[in-house]
Amino acid sequence: MRVKAKRDLLSLGACLLLYAIIQLLIEVDVIGQFWVLNIVLIGINIILGVSLNLINGFTGQFSIGHAGFMAVGAYVGAVMTVKLHLPFIVAILAGAAGAGILGFAIGLPTLRLSGDYLAIATLGLGEIIRITILNIPYVGGASGLMGIPRLTNFTWVFFATVFTVFFIKNFINSSHGRACISVRENEIAAEAMGVDTTKYKVMAFTIGAAFAGVAGALFAHYFYIVHPASFTFMKSFDLLTIVVLGGLGSITGSITAAILLTFVSAALAGYPEMRMVIYSLMLIGLMLFRPQGLFGNKEISLKFFNRLKGGSPRDAA
């Protein structure tokens, strides 16, 4: 099984190579400003999608308030650099901590609910977070918090994304992760097998919220300004779309969907009136033809290709 450890190092190496290539292309200006922006957005969306997938896809808790946690991360992070003049890494960690703590505080009472009731409660809490921020003059209220330094760049986003994906992948492939998945599969049976279901629901929710906070802090430090209107429930829907389109319970699915949707969004940027109409039709069409998402709950990997070629299935890393 130590093959798994080797495989981890290998994928880490592949990530470093990918980083070097893209960074080089940015340095020599083959990838211009517009595409750097989109690459940054892809990274942020991957962090958001994968972290929401941990809650919705793996643990089976229907949350649609993810934008609220992103908002907390964005504002807490921005306050760290703008008001307290602390370094960027502190801002990111504080954003994660802020969103994570709030996620814990919200998750503990709300995760007793299930299904649609949980969905509407998280949606409501996301809105409450936004409206609360809207009413705090210290962070600019309705006009938003301005003058945030642009500290986010490709390097930060890339490594934050890789860290998130590895963190959640490793978590899922452990006894803790299996406990989360058992809650999704059958909560009563999970409890009967000795799994403290409340603990694992709250744990997944807190981890998911904390990474949304990371994404928020990165987001705030790329666009110079954070605004409550960026974090409405429509934003939460966008994130849910990434998760469902990629496949509930598929990390590689979320990554693919985040890339795909960001590109579609970028490609349609030139047609502002038609953009959302096309986007919405695409969404409906994709769901009609592939309701289980692009990858279902499968992961795409080298062994997946092997299986396509007729090789034998091996256990997932």
Partner: peptide
């Protein structure tokens, strides 16, 4: 059962 999981994972969860 944890019906969408493998037979092995079903047992592993009980060992959790």
């Amino acid at each position: 059962l944890f019906s969408d999981l493998s037979v092995l994972d079903n047992v592993k969860i009980a060992y959790h």
